[in-house]
């Protein structure tokens, strides 16, 4: 069974088509990146897949449950690390993690146990008693991803996880994401092409709401007859390359 299967997934805002008949299949354990310039439809796609926004038409089935008809079932299997800071500012790192575990149904004892595990695996012990608002951007992002993983999601959406981070913090977060590969299905959106290139099993390139190409980095470069992934991306995202 695929982790995610979309069928003509479409989102319209009045006359504007944000996502147009998207058909995608993502396998379990895959790290799948969605790339595109601003307004390509990446974030709208993520919002539909994570049940934040209802599709205008079409559907997406996540591990057997439809986002259109069973959003609550889908929500139990997924988690999201949104763009920007998504932490409760006046709560400590530990409290933030316990809160999210509770929101996903863990009782107090389970929440404490899971929090301890996440603090250890994400190296958050030195800041566990610090309020989230006092953390640096890098620590906040790390906490944000730990909060997304504490519910043991089968599918994880990472929306621009390294936006605004310095190069060291970014590489640090890459290592964290790499460790998750194969264990969780990850859908990543990013503007950093080198990030998608380094982390992804497969990449989808969207432009003007439509899927332009899907494949591995090598497949995309080969299809566009380019030597650099950036050139392949430009060819596909600007519409100069044929759809794959």
């Amino acid at each position: 069974m695929s982790a995610i299967q979309t069928r003509d997934l479409t989102k319209k805002y009045k006359e504007k088509i944000a996502v147009d008949q998207l058909n995608l299949s993502i396998e379990q354990g895959e790290l799948f990146s969605l790339l595109g310039v601003n307004g390509a439809g990446k974030t709208t796609t993520i919002k539909m897949l994570s049940c934040l926004s209802k599709p205008t038409s079409g559907d997406a089935v996540l591990l057997g449950d439809s986002v259109a008809t069973s959003p609550m079932e889908v929500k139990k299997k997924i988690n999201v690390s949104p763009q920007e800071t998504a932490v409760a500012p006046n709560l400590t790192v530990k409290e933030n993690l316990e809160t999210i575990a509770g929101l996903y149904g863990s009782n107090r004892k389970e929440a404490v146990k899971k929090t301890k595990e996440m603090i250890e695996s994400f190296g958050l012990s030195e800041v566990e008693k610090s309020k989230a608002k006092t953390l640096s951007g890098g620590w906040q992002r790390r906490l944000s991803i730990a909060m997304a993983l504490i519910s043991n999601p089968q599918i994880l959406f990472l929306d621009e996880p390294t936006l605004g981070l310095d190069v060291l913090a970014r590489r640090d977060l890459w290592r964290t994401i790499e460790q998750l590969k194969g264990k969780v299905t990850i859908i990543l959106t990013t503007h950093y092409l080198e990030e998608a290139e380094a982390l992804s099993d497969r990449i989808a390139i969207m432009a003007k709401g439509r899927l332009k190409a899907v494949g591995t980095v090598k497949e995309l470069m080969s299809h566009t007859h380019t030597d650099k992934f950036e050139d392949a991306f430009i060819a596909l995202a600007s519409g100069n390359g044929a759809s794959l």
Partner: peptide
Amino acid sequence: STSFLIRLFASPLS
């Protein structure tokens, strides 16, 4: 005003 809302809405809270 923050992305924390998105996290809350993506959770199974009714």
